[in-house]
Design a protein around this nucleic acid. Structure first.
Lengths: 190, 190
DNA sequence: CAATTATTTTGACGTACGTACGATCGAAGC
DNA sequence: GCTTCGATCGTACGTACGTCAAAATAATTG
């Protein structure tokens, strides 16, 4: 493994263990086993390395969501959302670290355009994917209206559950209970 | 205004403008007009001051949500969720800074028990309040089951919409569209 | 008004930070 | 075998950091 890869892995680990801004260049060097000065050589600056690590983590987390979507696509439309949530919640518990990194990403994105823009783009893409799943169509067929309502709502729910799980591990409801809750919510203003 | 109050206000401002960890003690002193050493005198340490500011911001944001709940309580149960979301989304756009601070809070909470515990508690309380609103009962009457399903789901949606709004301002759907989306979601697995 | 306590101000200390510079190494090219 | 070039290493510079001790001032109390 090159020092470049080591540094990136180390930065991700630090991101999870100490957070974005509390991570120092020396922390990354120590954790990765790479040399301090290699950060500048390979990434230009420590902040640049951290941004790269943050985006990589968010992308990985996006892949997990997509895997849950793919699994849900195999079942009937009626079961789809619940199967998806089951897969998602399992991933949430399993890959806690990835989500912790994602929260760091959102927090930092407010101060760095280099983070906010790709994150906003990923968010928009996610909405389409999720709307497509729920509606049972292909992502390209999802119109802006559906992405901005159904997709945005599902995506928001996910993000919120992730936050909740980080704050109070193990407190997530089952997918079945979320389904029931959605019926209550839909009924409350039908 | 005492320096204590000035410092707290300055810390909040820095929290919003520069983020939790990027804020230095000298930043706070400069913004607040207070003296550097007053931080130690009044708050013991800079971190302690920042934690106090973070919790104050989250509490303020909680008050906004509660105001939206109260407003929604005035209408019929059928309109309630939609009216609530209308009020909430208005608050989201109006008090963007409070939400930005809240995101900082969640990001930091992962590394400081002094933040995570009160935040988790506030989260739990919010779930009850929201479940009570949707179900049309008083918060004390909400059982654990309802708080953990309906309340948790609504709360997650809110948190997600907040994140979305921070990432891409102005991209929130209207409350009516969220309502429609919820009906779609409930129907997708009925 | 004197005495005591609370707050503000000054100044500085020690440390940890990010980054730059040149030396060193190792493999590939001719 | 000498050169070249990308990568790694050792080190040190300048600076910005949080905190503290003590002096100065303000407020409170008897």
């Amino acid at each position: 493994m090159s020092q470049r890869e080591d540094l990136l892995a180390g930065a991700k680990k630090c991101l999870i263990d100490k957070g974005y801004s509390r991570t120092t260049a020396r922390d990354i060097a120590a954790v990765s086993g790479a040399h301090l000065a290699s950060i500048g050589y390979h990434f230009g600056s420590k902040d640049n390395l951290m941004n790269t690590a943050v985006l990589a983590a968010v992308e990985e987390w996006g892949d997990k969501i997509e895997a849950a979507v793919d699994a849900a696509d195999a079942v009937t439309p009626e079961q789809r959302l619940e199967v998806f949530l089951d897969g998602l919640f399992a991933a949430v518990e399993r890959d806690r670290e990835l989500m912790a990194a994602s929260v760091q990403a959102y927090a930092q994105a407010q101060f760095e355009d280099a983070l906010r823009e790709p994150l906003a783009e990923a968010y928009a893409r996610g909405r389409r994917t999720l709307a497509a799943m729920v509606l049972g169509v292909r992502p390209e067929e999802v119109d802006e209206e559906a992405a901005g309502s159904v997709g945005a709502t599902v995506h928001s729910m996910i993000a919120g559950f992730v936050l909740q799980s980080l704050l109070a591990p193990g407190s997530l409801p089952s997918a079945a209970r979320v389904s029931a809750a959605l019926r209550v919510l839909a009924g409350a203003h039908g």
